[in-house]
Design a protein around this nucleic acid. Structure first.
Lengths: 189, 189
DNA sequence: TTAATTTCTTAAGATATCTTAACTTCTAAT
DNA sequence: ATTAGAAGTTAAGATATCTTAAGAAATTAA
């Protein structure tokens, strides 16, 4: 566990074992069963979760009562509801385990204490946040205004693992395509 | 100029005058005429720009040769092409002044030197980046899958200043609506 | 002020995508 | 193994939005 975190963090900034020990000592571990919620709508998102193993989705319910999936996250990704976690305001979204998922997690308060004790961690999160912004900008700038078929092809190409592990109707929701139409698009010929 | 930057940065982290002097000493100032480019497609985005006064847009050209606007930015916003600036890779997008625009700007290298000399600045940018991420997630999560009319109404409500200053066809592009259809939507009754 | 360019509007026909609803296939639980 | 629920497919009709094309209005330049 500690080693997985170390390998991950060292991709951004080099941390000594002592520093990793400090960070790790502040993290708690938990396993969520399939379909269990890490966060529910209207609750403040208290934690930032580092996924050791598993698969989760984030979604909200629109005016028509439909689930709209906004992200998937797997091993070695941080997942939280950024807005709710940063501002400590109620979340509009849910975070739910699609597979059994084991995480390390920490509160905003704990994270801020760590930033002060270990400025390198703040640098790591600055870089991680920049990367998340870049990924999200790709989604909003280009991805969402492609045609449905292009979005699906792009997703299959870039995230083939997810196609295996995530039900098709969830992929449709993430791609903002109705499940029926995605089914149509997948038809050969 | 220095004062405007100070007021802005102090919204995130408190900086002493000495620290502001250090930061300010590394920034250059420049004025772009209306329609001048801060960044052109295929070039590496060398700078992060802090807009003192003015209005710019970022856009790319799609396969059909149409301009797709991805953001507007005004006074007291940082603007750059995040992906190109962070990774120092060629940009797909342009950044262009819509009105005459005066900026302070600095290179990635300079910014990294400043992060080391003044860790508070790294904290400020960590927070600024978090806020940009939150704003962008709102766009990709909710905004882009609203109906065209809702997107327009939302934009009018949240950014009324832009309606005055930005030609309607540019707003249409940002909202991912054809200019003709936006014109239709705006018709009374 | 007039001409030139840019921006905005209107309308008709085309198309992508959604909705509904029924049916099939798959999966998980008894 | 059987059944109940979940997930995926199919097809017809509805609708949002785009495309094209032309003209009107507004800005900018001469």
């Amino acid at each position: 566990m500690k080693n997985q975190l170390k390998t991950y963090l060292n991709r951004y900034v080099y941390f000594s074992d002592t520093e990793i020990d400090l960070i790790y000592s502040q993290l708690k571990e938990k396993t969520f069963k399939k379909k269990a919620f890490l966060l529910k709508e209207s609750k403040v998102c208290k934690f930032n979760y580092f996924i050791l193993k598993g698969l989760v989705r984030s979604f909200y319910i629109d005016e028509k009562g439909k689930e709209k999936i906004t992200l998937f996250a797997i091993d070695n990704w941080w997942v939280t509801n950024t807005e709710s976690f940063i501002k400590q305001t109620p979340s509009i979204q849910y975070i739910q385990a699609i597979e059994e998922t084991t995480v390390l997690y920490l509160s905003k308060e704990t994270l801020e204490i760590l930033y002060n004790k270990c400025p390198k961690l703040e640098r790591a999160f600055r870089i991680i946040t920049e990367n998340m912004l870049i990924a999200n900008q790709r989604k909003s700038d280009v991805f969402l205004q492609m045609k449905s078929k292009e979005r699906y092809n792009d997703f299959v190409k870039k995230l083939p693992d997810f196609i295996q592990r995530v039900p098709q109707y969830m992929i449709a929701s993430y791609l903002e395509i109705s499940p029926e139409y995605l089914s149509e698009l997948r038809k050969p010929k």
